[in-house]
Design a protein around this nucleic acid. Sequence first.
DNA 1: GTCTATAGATTGATAGAC
DNA 2: GTCTATCAATCTATAGAC
Lengths: 196, 196
Amino acid sequence: MYSGGVSTPERLIESTRELLWERGYVGTSPKAILERAGAGQGSMYHHFKGKPDLALAAIRRTAQELRASAERVLDGPGTPYERIEAYLRRERDVLRGCPIGRLTMDPDIIASAELRAPVDETIDRIRRRIAEIVEEGKRQGQFAPALDGEEIGATVLATVQGGYVLARAAGSPAPFDAGVRGLLALLAPRTPGQEN
Amino acid sequence: MYSGGVSTPERLIESTRELLWERGYVGTSPKAILERAGAGQGSMYHHFKGKPDLALAAIRRTAQELRASAERVLDGPGTPYERIEAYLRRERDVLRGCPIGRLTMDPDIIASAELRAPVDETIDRIRRRIAEIVEEGKRQGQFAPALDGEEIGATVLATVQGGYVLARAAGSPAPFDAGVRGLLALLAPRTPGQEN
DNA sequence: GTCTATAGATTGATAGAC
DNA sequence: GTCTATCAATCTATAGAC
């Protein structure tokens, strides 16, 4: 339950972000949001048009934060391989899953162009940033010329998103970590004299 | 809506399978199941203890079918690489997602050991089968000895599961196909004289 | 701007007629 | 074995007092 010097709309958005992550859109009721935010029924409908409007505000903020934190890692120091490795290995609460990726399994999100848009944009931007890094690595001779940046970008992001699925199914982060290690082994940069 | 010479419990299970795939567990109501099955309230509670019991029957059947069809491809003809390629490229209704994988984003499925069990078992068995095939490929010299079968198995399955996430976010199967192509490029078998 | 009261629909489940 | 009727609780939303 949020309190402190934070405004009511702010508490509503933060509570919605948490619940969307935990239970998805379909599984999140206004009542649950209001309880967590410590607000009454009227407050929500005063500040937002309804559940979809509040969810949109919450999703936009989560998308923005996720994109920023991913790009901080991808634009950090190191060789192309090292930056992709940093992205794959960065700290994650694996069993909670991806707060943006999980929304793609929500039928009401996918049915609404407005709610799906920030999800699409976030995933697409990260994927394209990885694609650029792979192309950079190809120019530097770190990756094989036969690799396609766009394709590897999709593979990297899919491994992460699918890693969450495997981990949640198993009830353990281990399969996520295994998938990441497998991908890194496949991506391992070519060093002089190395045959694979 | 199911009819024909099919029994009522059968129609209930099939309707539940469809709805779990489309809307997940949280998003599927007994009412919706009954409407699709063309049955009344009483029928469902006569044959099943309730929503979780019916869902369990539906999930077990879907899990069984998915495992069988995946293993048919993985145990088919061809080299280890070709069998993994066949698995990755097999026909999929990409935008519908995986009927088993999507359940991992359902909080009520994950909260129930009984409902999660068939999901876990299905994913785990396919992953281990791929791991065996990778080890077989290593023995044949088709894959680099440095690769770990268990890890690559997780990477392959994660790429598929995550590919669905990317595709549904984009509203197009293209990112799924791109991710698969990227992974296949990384897995590409070593042929005599080839350096990467 | 916040609250409670209330609305009509839907949820998951039960009772009891046929 | 199937149906309709009914249940208490919850859903999303609105009304209106403060």
